[in-house]
Amino acid sequence: MSHYEGLFLFASRENKPDYVGVEQHVNEVMAKYGAKPIKAQKWAERKLSYEVKRNRRGAYLLVYFDVDSARLPEIRRDFQISERILRHNILACEEIPAELPEFMEFKEEPLGGDDFRGRWSSGRSGGFDRGGPRGPRRGDGPGDGGDMGGGQPVGSADMGSSRG
């Protein structure tokens, strides 16, 4: 018997997730395969990052349980088939935490909101990503002829005239 941590995503219709019903459903599935639920906690209720089976909002139930590792594939398969559970994730954990995380209220944070610029930055503006428009390219200016030496060297006409 090993410790496992399961996170279950289910639909939250009209912002009223049925935690009790889903917890009962999870316990029934686990009991079928000899698993022992130890702790269960409602983890979050939030707008999903993308639609899952036409659900825009979802709720998460966090369950810690003990089970024989040989029965785990059957449990995973049952949750995959289940219509009440949209997604699930089961991970092995070394020990069950004494204090479960509290119900989390998430604010919608944008991606890439950190201002850390990496170890190579000196802290000034610029560095890895300047964010502004790029400067003029080679060949954009009127006097630029490129690398291949298409332009006439300055003063070549004078050199020719001085010889003659």
């Binding site: 890439g112 950190d114 990496g118």
Partner: peptide, 20 residues
């Protein structure tokens, strides 16, 4: 929320050089 800070606005993971 901390993982989101390590992703671009498109949702792609920052490189090691960028994230540190």
């Amino acid at each position: 929320p901390q993982l989101m800070k390590l992703c671009t606005t498109q949702g792609k993971l920052f490189s090691r050089k960028r994230s540190g």
